[in-house]
């Protein structure tokens, strides 16, 4: 089943009179339960592609279908709704809300989805357990290490049972040990829950985890390989 389908997607950024073509006619499909890496040098369009799949941005041209819904036809609030229930994000910077505890950070998307307190509590505890953070539920982000913060971020991304999780350089700010731990967690969740993972990276140690590797260069796909 297709989770995301992009057809001839182009994204042009205009700064003053200068136009930068970040993506140029990309067409691709992401199937359910994929564990896909978007690779390529800096400026190749990896992050732009993730942002478009994540409905954080709109393409200049082309069509993006997410979970059978045409994201290019949605307004700002409709895209927020689509993100809320369908897409999870893990960012390069440890993007937790600093005023909330680990528990509350994971709970926030569930609150936005209108889940009841009992449902929320069970789900949050399960997720924190799955990323081995149960002992830190009441810690705020500034009381956690980078690796711990990123594990909470993964738990948060998974909280609403999204169809797809998009991770932008999730290990870039982590040391090797923590980076591997995060990748192992994501891989295990992918295998256990069949959640689709797409992560942008240029770290060869991360790429080795991917089942499918899409290579970008200058805004176009130059390679797409799947390992057995």
């Amino acid at each position: 089943m297709e989770v995301a389908k992009l057809t001839d997607v182009t994204r042009i950024y205009k700064i003053g009179e200068v136009e930068t073509r970040a993506l140029n006619g990309i067409s691709m499909t992401i199937e359910e339960a994929e564990f896909t890496a978007l690779v390529g040098p800096s400026g190749s369009g990896k992050t732009t592609l993730l942002q478009l799949i994540g409905c954080l941005d709109k393409p200049t041209a082309g069509k993006i279908i997410i979970n059978n819904e045409d994201a290019t036809k949605l307004n700002r609030n409709q895209r927020a709704d689509l993100r809320k229930g369908t897409i999870g994000f893990v960012f390069q910077f440890f993007a937790l809300i600093p005023t909330l505890t680990a528990y509350e950070n994971v709970e926030l998307p569930l609150l936005l989805n209108g889940k009841n307190p009992t449902e929320r509590k069970g789900r949050v505890m399960d997720l924190l357990e799955s990323v081995d953070m149960l002992s830190h539920t009441h810690h705020r982000p500034d009381q956690l290490s980078g690796g711990q913060q990123q594990r909470v971020a993964v738990a948060r991304a998974l909280s609403t049972n999204p169809k797809i999780i998009l991770a932008d350089e999730p290990t870039a700010n982590l040391d090797t040990k923590n980076g591997e731990q995060i990748m192992n967690i994501m891989q295990k969740l992918n295998q256990d829950t069949h959640t689709t993972f797409v992560f942008a990276t240029h770290d060869p140690r991360v790429i080795k985890y991917a089942k499918r590797v899409i290579t970008l260069e200058d805004g176009v796909i130059v390679g797409d390989s799947t390992s057995k």
Binding site: N77, A80, D81, R83, K84, G85, F89
Partner: peptide, 16 residues
């Protein structure tokens, strides 16, 4: 600013 970006990315609407 970045935190606002994170909040919107997890589905928080402008009105919220």
């Amino acid at each position: 600013t970045r935190e606002i970006g994170v909040l919107t990315s997890i589905g928080m609407k402008g009105s919220q």
